[in-house]
Design a protein around this nucleic acid. Sequence first.
DNA 1: GAGTGGATTTCGCAT
DNA 2: ATGCGAAGTCCACTC
Lengths: 256, 256
Amino acid sequence: MAEGSRVLEKPSLRSSAAVIREAIAKHRCVVLVGRCRVEYQGRARSTLEPGERIVIIKEDGATLVHRPMGYEPVNWQPSGCYFRTSLVDETLILIAVRRNPPESLRVFFDQVHALVAMRMVDAGRFDLHVSESEMREAILAEPEVFEEGFKPIAYEKRVEPGFLDLYGLDSSGRLVVVEIKRVKAGKSAVLQLARYVDSVRNTVSRDVRGVLAAPHISKGVQRLLATLNLEYKRVDLERCAQVLKMAEGRKIQDFF
Amino acid sequence: MAEGSRVLEKPSLRSSAAVIREAIAKHRCVVLVGRCRVEYQGRARSTLEPGERIVIIKEDGATLVHRPMGYEPVNWQPSGCYFRTSLVDETLILIAVRRNPPESLRVFFDQVHALVAMRMVDAGRFDLHVSESEMREAILAEPEVFEEGFKPIAYEKRVEPGFLDLYGLDSSGRLVVVEIKRVKAGKSAVLQLARYVDSVRNTVSRDVRGVLAAPHISKGVQRLLATLNLEYKRVDLERCAQVLKMAEGRKIQDFF
DNA sequence: GAGTGGATTTCGCAT
DNA sequence: ATGCGAAGTCCACTC
């Protein structure tokens, strides 16, 4: 393990404070398991009564307070905040503050069960596949993923209320405005598309189709679409992934 | 510390596997710090090359993989998933699976720097103040927080496209549809409000005002509001908090 | 620095 | 189970 690492069982509050202070100063990561209460004040306010939690302080200052259940931290502070640690009346106090928005998080420990402080080295690359932009890439590379005979013209085209995800011509030469959603399309996606189509109709004097491209849609949204004279086209994510993989293969072939 | 707790420095992969398996079986929390690579497959797909990370397994099955920087976990699994741990070729493999949506997370450790496993007791109550519904409560308790002379009629009223946050009569007897936003109001809030107002106008044959109530608004959204003949009313969150506190005091007085 | 939209969003509540 | 909107959302990207 790296220099200056600490794995402590039931450290005193005093030595915990010392270790935490040093770790923060040297931008090491800290993991604390212990009994604490928490106060937050900023965009909102919260109090958390005493209990056993896991507190993580990362090297960039991001801070998390996790209860023993649930995916989300109960309290937190994003990266880039400043710390103060102190020991008052048999309580270890950790304060994390950030400006913009002005927010403070205060953690009061009366017991530390475990304390890990170490420099962590992590240069591993992270790849995530099939995002909304990758859906668009797949449609551009293989337009029939979206619709037979579709010919893309442009993407992220600026219009009045925002950007068109994608637009082009269909097999019969009509203009098509496509709104892409990687997950189930909701009401707001429809309202967005409706506004975009209106905007395009005001610009060009020809027929314009508005199509929502998504892997799923709800019944209510389906109805709303019909009301507004818009369409839905199912897009298969697996198919997108395949197309992207093939396209990547082609790119590599092109390279050699 | 509770029965069966473990705080281990540089445990072998074999003993790590044993401790993790037991902890999961007994619904204890596990914190692992070590070198690993991660694969995720489900709604999307991701791979994370080897590096040092913090892995948390909670008693309800929620699982988090944290890199040494950033607020968000790089990989995760929400609560309610199932685990399998194994030791293959000098690698400790942790698999967390959930159905609906079908997703799997696989973590491959080649080194464990620290391992904490313990039953955590946390019954502490959590209170968060000044949510959107609390803004509404404040306006209901003290309508001038929103507008002088406003008389609320109902809240969460069902109309065609969804629910009206709040509606009532203004000082001159006109119907007012209020859309409440706790944070800066965005474009989608305006589109929502516009649709609601349209819907109400189609129902009643009288003048209807549409008002966005929020602590902040952007210039562009202000313009869009004007275009659609809607209004903005600033609401102070601190004022809401005060009103709520007073209202609570009154409630307590009523009780005695 | 504000503005905009996506996210493996998660979570909660209502149908 | 599905649908729908809030969130201390965070984050990345543009202007």
